[in-house]
Simulated assay, not measured.
Amino acid sequence: MTACYLFPLALTASPQAEEGEAVRLAGGLVYASRFALVEREGGRITARRRFSVPELRAALPDLPPEAREQWDNLRRAHAPLQFGQRTVRLDQPQVMGILNVTPDSFSDGGEFLDRPDVASAHAAAMLEAGAAIIDIGGESTRPGAPAVWEGEEIKRVIPIVERVAAMGAAISLDTRRPVVMEAAIAAGAHLFNDVSALRHDPRSAELAANTGVPVVLMHAPGEGEDLHADAGYGNVVLEVFDWLAARRDAAIEAGIAREKIVLDPGIGFGKTLAENLALMNALPLFHALGQPLLLGASRKRMIGALSNEAPADKRLGGSLTLALRALEAGAQIVRVHDVAETVQALRVWRGLRDAALTDFTLLPA
């Protein structure tokens, strides 16, 4: 069976730069002017054709239905996410701030565990710095981290969820356990950020469907306690794409509204440095899935691998580089530790984008 993938090859800061021959990706601030249609059969790429926007529009009637669906998905504008009384728009990139209430997370393990005053002060600082969402987690998902009993996870996260909810914040809970998520929703959480993409517990999809909360489905190769296990890719980009498409479809079949589904390619989860870099370079392709994209690469091991093994707390430069790469690719949400620095980078990037709408190379009217 032949599969096809419509990949935005050439991105531009404004449609004017291409005299209108560029399309807006995912209703955001990034435009694409050239595309590659890649065909794959039996795990092997069998064809690759390139198109300008006019050429692609002319060729669409003769392309496979899958390619036409991806063309529509690439241009799909995403409705805002509703978090209680707060609305998070997806026509511009947003920052999600990380708050780990764990003893063993790779970057900040133990910093906020059993210190609710410190944790809530950190959340307040991230909100003041410009975070649109606070992502609270009570279990480390780094390689080799032990699983956490759901009762212990609830004990860690619920007091912080309650405090952050009292601030009026949009709250995401980073968990793969529906019992924990259910308790968090009751305490004021709004988004189910599941690193297992609703596979860890069959009740997760039912909870998300019944409560109507948005969900983040992240790619990870492992199906058991170790999400990093069972990795092995022939083509990491296309296989992660297919996997996320299958999880999106499974979520919709389970009754989760399509507009409530966000996808995450899972940088660092069961992937080598080369595979992570390939995914980062291919991020625009994932808009062809038709869902908002979340990118979480902050302080991850790939940065250390490329910077003389810098420790996690010395990876700000690399984290900002990857966050900006995500913005350039049109990702809607970047999940980060260093909120103030990322928000500043985002605002400067946004200023450049706004300025690009006036193209200095065009002839005067």
Score class of each variant (00 low, 15 high):
Y5C: 11
F7A: 06
L11M: 11
L11E: 00
S14Y: 01
A17R: 12
E18P: 02
E19Q: 07
G20M: 04
E21I: 02
A22D: 12
V23M: 03
R24W: 08
R24A: 11
G27S: 02
Y31H: 09
R34A: 06
F35Y: 04
F35H: 02
A36D: 15
R40P: 05
E41R: 06
T46A: 08
F51P: 03
V53S: 12
E55R: 00
R57D: 15
P65G: 01
P65L: 02
A67Y: 10
E69R: 15
D72F: 11
H78V: 06
H78L: 07
F83L: 01
T87R: 15
Q92G: 13
V95K: 00
V95I: 14
M96E: 06
G97S: 07
I98V: 13
D104Y: 02
G110H: 13
F112R: 02
A119G: 14
A119M: 11
S120E: 15
A123C: 07
M126W: 14
L127H: 12
G130M: 10
I133D: 00
D135N: 15
D135R: 14
T141I: 02
R142P: 13
P143N: 00
G144M: 08
A145G: 08
P146W: 09
A147D: 15
V148D: 02
I154P: 00
R156T: 14
V161R: 00
R163E: 15
V164I: 10
A165T: 06
R176K: 12
R176Q: 12
P178K: 08
V179N: 13
A186S: 09
A189L: 10
H190K: 10
L191E: 11
P202G: 05
S204K: 07
E206F: 01
L207E: 01
A208N: 11
A209H: 09
P214C: 02
P214T: 04
V216P: 13
M218H: 10
E223H: 10
E223W: 07
G224C: 07
L227G: 03
L227W: 08
Y233E: 03
V236A: 06
V237P: 05
L238R: 11
L238I: 09
L238K: 09
W243I: 05
I256W: 00
E259V: 01
L263V: 14
L263A: 06
D264T: 07
I267D: 03
F269N: 03
G270S: 03
T272F: 00
N276W: 06
L279T: 11
L283M: 08
Q291P: 11
L295V: 13
L295W: 08
S298C: 01
R299G: 09
M302G: 05
I303C: 04
A310L: 11
D313N: 09
G318A: 12
L320C: 13
L320F: 08
L320S: 04
T321H: 03
L327D: 00
A331V: 14
A331L: 12
I333R: 01
R335Q: 05
E341P: 08
E341W: 00
V343Q: 10
A345V: 07
L346Y: 03
W349C: 07
W349F: 14
W349Q: 02
R350K: 12
L352G: 04
R353L: 10
A355C: 11
